Amino acid sequence: MASKQTRERGFSLTEMLVAVGILGILCSIAIPSYISNIHKTCQTEVANILNILSSTVSSYKAINGTYPETWEDVSEVAVVMTKAGPANAADGNLTEAITTPACDFTISKSSDDASGLFTFTATPDAETGDKAEFNAMSCIDLNNGASDLKLGRRDAEGAVTAEALTCRRQP
Rank of each mutant, 00 (worst) to 15 (best):
G65Q: 11
G65R: 07
T66N: 14
Y67M: 11
P68Q: 14
E69V: 12
W71A: 13
W71V: 08
W71M: 10
E72A: 15
E72V: 02
E72C: 05
E72H: 12
E72M: 11
D73S: 08
V74R: 05
V74L: 10
S75M: 07
S75Y: 06
E76S: 15
V77S: 08
V77M: 10
V77L: 07
A78R: 12
A78I: 07
A78Q: 10
V79A: 12
V79S: 10
V79C: 02
V79P: 00
V80T: 07
V80F: 02
V80W: 00
V80S: 03
M81K: 11
M81T: 02
M81W: 03
M81H: 03
T82C: 05
K83D: 00
A84W: 00
A84Y: 01
A84G: 01
G85Q: 05
G85Y: 04
G85R: 10
P86M: 03
P86H: 02
A87K: 04
A87C: 03
A87Q: 03
N88K: 06
A89G: 04
A90R: 07
D91S: 11
D91P: 00
D91T: 00
D91E: 11
N93E: 11
N93R: 12
N93D: 09
N93H: 08
N93W: 03
L94V: 09
L94M: 10
L94D: 06
T95R: 07
T95L: 01
T95E: 06
T95F: 07
E96L: 11
E96T: 15
I98R: 05
T99K: 14
T99E: 09
T100E: 03
T100W: 04
P101Y: 12
A102V: 07
C103D: 02
C103R: 03
C103M: 02
D104W: 02
D104R: 14
T106K: 14
T106P: 00
S108I: 01
K109P: 00
K109V: 06
K109E: 07
K109Q: 14
S111G: 11
S111H: 05
S111I: 06
D112L: 05
D113Y: 04
A114H: 02
A114S: 13
A114T: 11
S115T: 13
S115K: 14
G116Y: 08
G116D: 08
L117D: 02
F118T: 09
F118G: 11
T119H: 01
T119P: 00
T119L: 13
F120C: 12
F120Q: 07
T121M: 06
A122G: 05
A122T: 02
A122W: 00
T123I: 12
P124G: 14
P124H: 13
P124N: 14
D125P: 00
D125W: 03
T128F: 09
G129E: 04
D130V: 15
D130G: 13
D130E: 13
D130R: 15
K131M: 04
A132E: 08
A132Y: 04
A132N: 06
E133V: 06
